[in-house]
Simulated scan of single mutants.
Amino acid sequence: MGGVALFFRLVLASLKGQALYPTSAVLATLAQFLVTGIEVVAIWALFDRFGTVQGWALGEVALFYGLVNVMFAIADALGRGFDVLGTEFLRTGAFDRLLLRPRTLPLQLMGHDLRMSRLGRLAQGLMVLAYATAQAGIAWTPAHVGLALFAIAGGVALFLGILVLQGTLAFWTVESLEVANMFTYGGVEAGQYPITLYARWFRRLLTFGVPLACVAYYPAVAILGRADPLGAPAWIGWLSPLAGFVFLALSFLAWGHGVRRYTSAGS
């Protein structure tokens, strides 16, 4: 069986397992939708009180919110295996079983446990994108649709890269460090707003360290058709999502180093 076929076979097995408890799956999805919905209410309350924030209107910020949450929902579903690598594989010795299989480790981990509940965040992100379209008057030309899909793909790569790094750290710490949540959930929180609202050092971190601005801010500015307040040229938004794929490639380089360090459970 080819790698892609095996991946879909693993995903199907994961979904079938969750489908055995449909009520639980539906409630988990609904809970994810409602919990993340609180963030939408908070953003609405902020703009309802002040109207605009540094020249940004609610509809424009909704575009940032929708794009980032769609990116993270997909990456979080695919990266579950890296998130639980320490507790479910390294500590139990189950990682040895993955090593014995004639397929790549990342593929096995990405197909390990694809959670249906992530559909809650995905649905909410898509709904907010629809709201942003109506509120900000976004014209979804073929070029803009292509850019949005490119940005989402780059964002999925970026967040997946962060989860890969989180799993890589478990080769040294065994436990998955909660500090990684600063870059996953914290990255989602930061990406929901234009980076112009942040201090210069934080903008640089989100551009050159963890390039969240490259997959969310600059493409969104290009889709909105407005000039960047930071002075970046218009073409940046059309190329910047590539940074997400570069980040993922670098993350897998670190992953390979971590795998070589692994010495088995000894049992």
Rank of each mutant, 00 (worst) to 15 (best):
R97F: 00
I74M: 10
A42H: 02
G55R: 11
V61P: 05
R103C: 02
V68G: 10
L99P: 05
T104Y: 00
F47G: 09
I38R: 08
R103A: 13
G86A: 11
F47T: 06
F33Y: 06
G59D: 04
V61Y: 03
G51A: 02
F50R: 07
I38M: 14
F33V: 10
Y65H: 14
T52N: 11
F47H: 08
A62M: 15
R97D: 07
T87V: 11
L85I: 00
A42F: 05
E39P: 11
V53A: 11
D48E: 08
T36K: 10
G59T: 03
L78P: 00
A28T: 08
F89I: 07
R103H: 10
T36Y: 10
G79S: 14
L78H: 03
D76S: 15
A73R: 09
D96L: 07
D76I: 07
F95E: 01
G51P: 07
D76V: 08
G86Q: 08
A73L: 12
N69G: 01
L46Q: 13
R103N: 13
L30V: 15
D48V: 00
G55C: 06
V70G: 01
N69E: 02
V61H: 04
V40F: 05
L105P: 05
G66P: 11
F50W: 01
A28P: 12
Q54S: 14
R49C: 00
V68L: 11
T104S: 15
N69P: 02
R49N: 06
R49S: 10
E39F: 10
A75G: 02
G59V: 08
M71K: 05
G81P: 03
G66K: 09
L63D: 08
W44R: 15
